[in-house]
Write a protein that binds this DNA or RNA. Structure first.
Lengths: 338, 338
DNA sequence: CTGAAAGCGCTAACAG
DNA sequence: CTGTTAGCGCTTTCAG
């Protein structure tokens, strides 16, 4: 195999100095005579020297890479989070490895096994679940980890939103607009974020003295698409429903489709509210009234915190105490509610 | 700093054998007595041994990672391509580093500098431009590279679609539906793919004996948003226009918005066709008639080819001759045309 | 200010 | 079948 034939040794030879000198000028931390510095820099440039990432990493005990675990980049929640992560990673001279897990724990474990020992210096998990113990034990070994969006318990760093409050704000708004019989479309209830959104919904109803009815809670069976029949069924049994609070934008879109196929107009006949404010929500018809999550900032903050932990560990030998960062959401009123 | 304290040496000690033996059983290629194999495997399991990616990479001269350069993951063209790349990478035991370049050559060069020497074993570029000479020279050094979507010239591997033919098919369909005055919304004309789509448009017109009119060509100024005023202006000056052929879906959506704001109904009053068939095109109103690009397959094929080249180089010492792979597109008729 | 030497963790001859 | 040894390319003492 043709070797890359481009290393410090060659630069050293060309410049007529030792490898250690080359290392020193390229690191640029210590004083070097102006003369040799120039020689080395020229030699490096002429040979188009590019440092060997692996060698450096092996020696220094770090890779300058972080990983980001997400369910799937196809889910419109994640492109913005990824951008946030990558932008701050880049500005700190880190590179990011993207891992799509499809919510498959085995896939995730495989990735972690491959990456945890020098593959990356830390991991952002947007995939945390109740039983992700392998994540916790990796953290206990002292491996830098930051959670986003999902489960968190105070033991690990996390950057999240206040789901209860956000749902509460949304549903309160609906009530303030005169809606009285609001159904809710829930996601995977194993995830605390959906439990919290349900709680927020309940709280808003309670505060308005609207009785909570279990029958108005739509629970996903399998995929998002299940909300299509669910919506039709619900409305058949409860024609009094005048609004749907969907716990994400895709569900809102599916509900709208079902409603339209029943001959209903949005928002004239019935209202629909989304959650997340992903890229599509402004583009669909009608543009969605929804709760904006600062996705980019979530990614950016998570990466910042992760890199902080990586450096902390590098310098002090251990991780800093975990911190939960809560970012603000915002109600975005568009055209899917009256 | 607390070292990860988990290496072959420890496993070897615990198992009472030498490091090379550990290496051998863990590699699993050569015969080892059943006895020691078991000892080693147990020791490894008990110590939760995870191989050091960097050490292995340095020794073997490969990282088992590939990079993917894209303009931005926010652009809905790319999530599917990324999934395609990652799925095949994963199945070949590679990991993928995602690089958002924002079409910024300096950012891209920085990434390449950082990744080219052992950072990754090869790169998929979805960002190729006329003047991306640094990509070509990296390739000439023998570095595995595959292009997608953009420029290509036969010197580098590429997986693409036939843009001319696809546009031709699309516009021919429009003509067959009775549209006679079709405007076109072009993208960055430095990119051959848009030149080709224009050519396809022209060819379809020509074949139908419809004269090509330069005035019906809308050229982007700055961002996609420029098509909003552009559309209004065009229609003011050319009220005879009965259809817009947009060279991507986002542009189609913006045009639709402009048209609606002028009081026009789609498709009753005027038609709009998109291109790409990204995730949103089925979700917007009206759902877009568009040209489907097999985005996932593009990513998957590119990754396959890249890994092939990496292995070829590994085994034979040089790259295989470049190959251009052309994937099929498909006309998707939805509701934005009559 | 600079060179020699050791070693990060792993694999691959080379012996035996 | 297994141990010893060298070395991947780099950084970092330790001398000088």
């Amino acid at each position: 195999m043709v070797k890359s034939a481009n290393n410090m040794k060659e630069v050293a030879q060309k410049a007529g100095v030792s490898v250690s000198t080359v290392s020193r000028v390229l690191a640029g931390k210590t004083y070097i005579s102006e003369n040799t510095r120039e020689m080395v820099e020229n030699a490096a440039k002429e040979l188009n020297y590019r440092p060997n990432v692996m060698a450096k990493g092996l020696k220094l005990g770090r890779s300058n890479a972080i990983a980001l675990m997400i369910p799937s980049i196809d889910n419109l929640m994640f492109p913005d989070i990824v951008r946030g992560v990558e932008d701050v990673a880049q500005s700190h001279n880190f590179v990011v490895t993207l891992c799509n897990t499809d919510e498959d724990m085995n896939k995730e474990k495989l990735y972690m096994k491959k990456l945890s020992n020098m593959g990356v210096d830390g991991i952002v998990f947007a995939t945390m679940r109740k039983n992700s113990d392998y994540v916790r034990s990796l953290h206990e070994e002292g491996f830098p980890i930051v959670l986003t969006s999902r489960n968190y318990d105070g033991k690990l760093d996390a950057v999240v939103i206040n789901n209860l409050l956000s749902a509460y704000k949304g549903v309160s708004y609906l009530i303030s607009r005169g809606y009285k019989n609001i159904a809710i479309a829930l996601g995977d209830e194993e995830l605390p974020l959906y439990q919290k959104r349900l709680l927020g919904y309940k709280k808003a109803l309670e505060e308005a003295n609207i009785p909570y009815k279990e029958e108005l809670v739509m629970r996903e069976v399998g995929t998002n698409d299940s909300f299509y029949p669910l919506t039709k069924d619900l409305l058949k049994n409860h024609p009094e429903v005048d609004c749907f609070f969907a716990t994400n934008d895709i569900r809102a879109i599916i509900i709208i489709r079902a409603l339209r196929d029943m001959g209903l107009r949005i928002p004239e006949d019935i209202g629909v509210m989304g959650f997340d404010d992903t890229q599509i929500s402004a583009l669909v018809d009608p543009p969605l009234t929804t709760i904006h999550q600062p996705l980019y900032e979530i990614g950016a903050s998570a990466a910042k915190r992760l890199i902080f932990q990586i450096q902390h560990k590098q310098e002090k030998g251990n991780l800093a105490l975990p911190k939960i960062e809560i970012l603000e959401t915002e109600l975005i009123v568009r055209k899917s509610t009256k």
